[in-house]
């Protein structure tokens, strides 16, 4: 039973982390109808911010996530203004532009910071584990804290989208840009803020991750891929959908990895994703 619970919790922590990373992507996808291919690289850039704040100024990730989120908010705004806006409405152009941006960010990191793996040591949460049932179940504190952040951020995002005037404007823009504009919604401002908020969400995850994961130029690649999957599976633009899909993916990964074979875990994840998309192309909670 202890082992089952451990595998379940491991899946839950992974799932909630994926949910936090995917939330911003879901928002951008849902509102602007474009895929930000640089999402994984946004994560990587935020991790470098947190790592260097910790390494150079001894600021703990528990604090530096604020800086990561702010940095990625700005990066999101700049990306919209200078990359996405110029290509919007031109078929595949935004997709290819963000793909190009991902290459620029990754190679910039490679060039400036070298491909070295950077591990932040001496953080408040480092190595802290809550042991339950005389060690039968171990709860790593960094993963638990990231999971709690995920729930809070997703909750806030959901509240903002459904309970505030700004959120209604975002939903209206997502449904019909022209109609929203005619109703007096400043859609341009919505686009800018959505890109910024999307960046800030992944920035929260990026700020916390260096407390248990090495930072390097390639770190965002697989996270980015999983985030696309979470969004497509959960439904474009749906925050509850993204959360549910992320948890589902985390659990499938954990259970398939432990009970079938570790090497099978991503096969199972991508397999289930394919199945869901084939049966329900809009995703579980698609708008």
């Amino acid at each position: 039973m202890g082992l089952f619970l451990q595998v379940l919790l491991d899946g839950l922590w992974s799932g909630l982390l994926y949910g936090l990373i995917a939330a911003g992507l879901s928002l951008i996808w849902g509102v602007l109808d474009i895929i930000n291919f640089a999402h994984g690289e946004f994560l990587m850039a935020g991790m470098y911010v947190s790592f260097f704040l910790g390494f150079l100024f001894k600021i703990d990730p528990l604090v530096s996530w604020v800086a990561s989120a702010a940095f990625l908010f700005l990066l999101g705004v700049v990306t919209y203004k200078f990359v996405v806006k110029r290509t919007l409405g031109k078929a595949m152009a935004p997709l290819l532009a963000t793909f190009g941006l991902s290459m620029v960010i990754k190679n910039f990191a490679m060039n400036r910071f070298t491909p070295n793996f950077r591990i932040l040591s001496g953080t408040i949460m480092e190595g802290k584990v809550i042991s339950l049932g005389q060690g039968a179940v171990m709860i790593p504190v960094p993963n638990l804290v990231t999971a709690l952040f995920s729930l809070v951020v997703l909750g806030l995002l959901y509240w903002m989208l459904t309970r505030t005037r700004f959120g209604w404007a975002v939903q209206a823009t997502a449904m019909d840009v022209e109609a929203a504009r005619l109703m007096g919604v400043n859609t341009e401002r919505i686009f800018i803020l959505v890109f910024g908020i999307g960046g800030a969400c992944v920035g929260v995850a990026a700020g916390l991750l260096p407390s248990y994961l090495a930072t390097h130029p390639d770190v965002g690649s697989l996270f980015g891929l999983i985030a696309f999957m979470v969004v497509a599976m959960g439904g474009f633009g749906s925050i509850p959908g993204a959360l549910l899909a992320a948890i589902l993916i985390g659990l499938i990964e954990s259970f398939a990895g432990f009970y079938i074979a570790p090497v099978f875990k991503y096969v199972a994840v991508f397999g289930v994703y394919l199945l869901v998309i084939m049966i329900r192309p809009k995703g579980l909670f698609g708008w």
């Binding site: 491991d10 390639d218 990895g257 432990f258 090497v263 991503y266």
Partner: peptide
């Protein structure tokens, strides 16, 4: 016997296998 995908986002199930 625990193979894993390089660049994985986590190695939780791999280490749980080893621990078990």
């Amino acid at each position: 016997d625990v193979p894993f995908t390089p660049g994985a986002t986590n190695l939780n199930s791999e280490i749980q296998k080893l621990k078990a």
